[in-house]
Amino acid sequence: MRVFKPVDIAGSGLTAHRAMLDVISENLANANTTRTEDGGPYRRKVPLFEERLVEAEKGRMESGGVIVKEIGVDDAPPRMVYDPGHPDANEEGYVAYPNVSVIREMADMMAASRAYEANLEVVESAKAMWEAATELLGR
């Protein structure tokens, strides 16, 4: 039995949800960014989670937590705000703002931090369990 596998799995969950929080904070920081390197407003980023497969004994693959496969980009159209005085306004006077919804990001942030806490709880429980197991060695 691989003693620290649950810790490994929970660790992958912690890493993935920290990455999710990174992406969310990037989205929030750029909620009003109208200029980017590729031109146009900033586009909302989305972390894509996937079940992680790790190599077990005899070359067999087994699931072992989660991994952020890639950071995708939200294709939703930008938010158009009428502001003729803005340097980035188009001919009609509209400014293209990022397709970031602050409320949605806040909700996602809560989901990410709750999931992070849940994984942390797994690590705590694993510690308590192995401590109980080492009691077999005697006090």
Partner: peptide, 23 residues
């Protein structure tokens, strides 16, 4: 104890994949 450890592993996996679509 071995079976409980396996169950614990399954719970750890489920919680790690709490935000994985289709899991």
């Amino acid at each position: 104890a071995g079976a409980l450890a396996a169950r614990f592993e399954a719970v750890a996996e489920n919680l790690a994949n709490i935000n994985t679509p289709g899991y």
